[in-house]
């Protein structure tokens, strides 16, 4: 059985939906509604493109390329402002402690201040994707990626440090 035939849409969706959702949530500065809409748009594109999947990349790389590109184009359609802390309040409110909620709010607010590509890269890094896979998704060399990640990490830390809640 070839790789293409072995992947059903349901299987792909169930395997990747949470990661794609968190990716979208990172892009959308923590806006849950936009992130849900965006992750649906990603999977609609995945469904549409599934017949063209040639199996020359890992299915996860293929899905995240579509996710990253959909996000890039979605941002151009609906440039979002960083949401107020009130709007971000509901993020996992039931599951995390108050301190965690506050830290998550800070984190999403900080990610929202990065450039589009930086948001994509740092979200993949936080999702612990291997650098080789991130470089294939984003389409830049691994060396270039390492330099960028180093910069983004310190930029993100600074943004969080300087965030006034």
């Amino acid at each position: 059985m070839n790789q293409k035939a072995s992947h059903s849409f349901t299987e792909i969706y169930e395997t990747h939906k949470q990661r794609v959702y968190r990716l979208c949530l990172g892009y959308m500065s923590g806006d849950i509604d936009l992130a849900k809409d965006l992750s649906q748009e990603v999977f609609i594109k995945v469904w549409e493109a599934l017949s063209t999947f040639r199996g020359d990349a890992r299915i996860s790389t293929w899905v995240y390329r579509i996710a990253a590109n959909t996000c890039l184009m979605y941002i151009r359609k609906a440039k979002t402002e960083v949401k107020s802390s009130l709007e971000l309040e509901s993020i996992n409110a039931d599951a995390d402690t108050k301190e965690n909620e506050s830290d998550i709010r800070k984190l999403y607010r900080a990610i929202g201040k990065l450039s589009e590509a930086e948001r994509i890269i740092i979200t993949f890094v936080l999702e612990e994707m291997p650098y080789s896979e991130i470089s294939q998704v984003v389409g830049i060399t691994e060396n270039n990626l390492r330099v960028r990640i180093h910069r983004i990490k310190s930029k993100l830390s600074d943004l969080i440090k300087n965030d006034r809640l």
Binding site: F9, K17, D96, D103, K106, L107, L126, S157, I160
Partner: peptide, 30 residues
């Protein structure tokens, strides 16, 4: 929360989103 390790810890402390659409719904929309 300024060390990147702390940032990673916060990120991984998030719980999964529970009310996501069903795969069949996405297929119908597509």
């Amino acid at each position: 929360m300024t060390d990147f390790k702390d940032i990673e810890a916060i990120w991984h402390n998030q719980s999964d989103q529970s009310d996501m659409a069903d795969a069949k719904d996405i297929e119908q929309k597509a």
